[in-house]
Design a protein around this nucleic acid. Structure first.
Lengths: 242, 242
DNA sequence: CAGTGGTCTAGACCACGGG
DNA sequence: CCGTGGTCTAGACCACTGA
């Protein structure tokens, strides 16, 4: 296995790319085990250590999950442990209850300036807009407005949403085969407008966290753009800096 | 080198602890190179691979910085590349100019309820409170109120601050030998009070980001508590989720 | 017990930086 | 040219899981 590429790429990265492609092609489903390190080493004709390093990186990126004695598994949003992976909102009193998601509305539209830029799709391309409320301990805390490319999310409707009682991303994964890999959030402070204030049961103008999120699937492809308005009277957005 | 501890700890973690202790003891200063992997392997009587794995973890935690062909270096806040390590505020128009830090006030006080809890010190213990303004392109954007344990920061005054033209953490590192390792931020939306509004030149009640940060040094010891009020009219707080 | 990931070693060679 | 970190290998053994 010699290296002769002009821009040098170590073997374990090439292996990583191969595993990534298999993952992307759906060779193994989320939650399932991938082949053992020995098997993969044989398949790619490299040593186990090289496969190991490739998997190490992918585990660090939350694409795979290692379980000693059992195997290596494809990460899944169905896993309850990854519920709070993208939701950083924490009650101030330390209560860790799961929020309840209440779909408010769901309709088809055409991508405007902003949506087309954020989602990397044509201006006027079909999109689906979804509004929902998040309640912690029965109290309304978050209003989300979610923009999805219509091409990928064909058939998404209020019925689909109401029948589902897991996280939104686990729905996307199970129902549309879409795996959310990473996201980027832009946070600002804004005042509640009329309708938001009503939905969150606060006074108009109440300071809220505006959290704009773009979520990416494989190949850094954006597949979701959402704007959340967070009421931070009894909750805060927790961020760890390393 | 046999393993006989009741709760198993792999060799490379023990090595990591030893390197950490050397780091903490100041055996190598920030910015300086630590001994080569071979030297450390000889010193601890393990193979180079084991040292490597220890260093790998520490590099992932931003404690050390690897530079191929040159060596491994102690991370430093003097390094311009780590300037934005803890500051996630980004101009909306993509301008990456460094902010200007203007100390407003600095006085001694005694730790109240909140400060003593956040800093892990006795109620009534001496603290230093520091207020400062951050300007991006001459516009006031952030007001910080910073609480520091007096015992560690003896001699910190307005003069010290005015003479320094680097980041606050690089001052702490150089002047007080304190290295900030990690931090935790709690973010909420609040309305600007009277004095804040004046300092930021906005109307009273303008929604602002309240960013409370606790910063830790070695051994997860909290050594700074600060509250920043961010004006997000032309900036946003950027967060990457993996 | 067998099979998985996790650790540790020793040695060879490569890429990079700087004298 | 040397010394550094970076890669790759092969093999041994350990820790954990589940049948």
């Amino acid at each position: 296995m010699t290296q002769e590429s002009p821009t040098f790429s170590p073997l374990y990265r090439q292996i990583k790319t191969l595993i990534l492609q298999a993952l992307e092609a759906g060779e193994w489903r989320p939650g399932q085990a991938i082949p053992s390190e020995q098997e993969l080493a044989a398949r790619f004709s490299v040593s186990q250590g090289t496969v190991r390093k490739a998997i190490d990186e992918m585990a660090a990126e939350n694409l795979l999950i290692r379980k000693q004695g059992k195997g290596t598994f494809v990460a899944s949003h169905n896993d309850p442990r990854s519920f709070f992976r993208f939701l950083r909102l924490v009650p101030m009193d330390g209560d860790i209850s799961h929020p309840q998601s209440i779909p408010l509305d769901c309709w088809k539209a055409k991508a405007g300036q902003e949506a087309s830029r954020m989602l990397g799709i044509e201006l006027g391309a079909p999109i689906i807009i979804l509004r929902r409320l998040l309640r912690f301990a029965m109290k309304p805390v978050v209003i989300d407005e979610i923009y999805l490319p219509g091409e990928i999310f064909q058939g998404l409707s209020m019925e689909t949403l109401q029948d589902w009682n897991g996280s939104l991303y686990s729905l996307f994964e199970t129902r549309f085969g879409l795996r959310m890999i990473r996201a980027q959030e832009r946070i600002r402070a804004v005042g509640a407008d009329r309708s938001t204030a009503e939905a969150l049961k606060v006074a108009e103008g109440t300071p809220l966290l505006s959290v704009e999120r773009v979520t990416y699937t494989y190949g850094d492809k954006p597949v979701e753009w959402r704007r959340g308005l967070y009421l931070t009277a009894e909750h805060f957005y927790l961020n760890e800096l390393n």
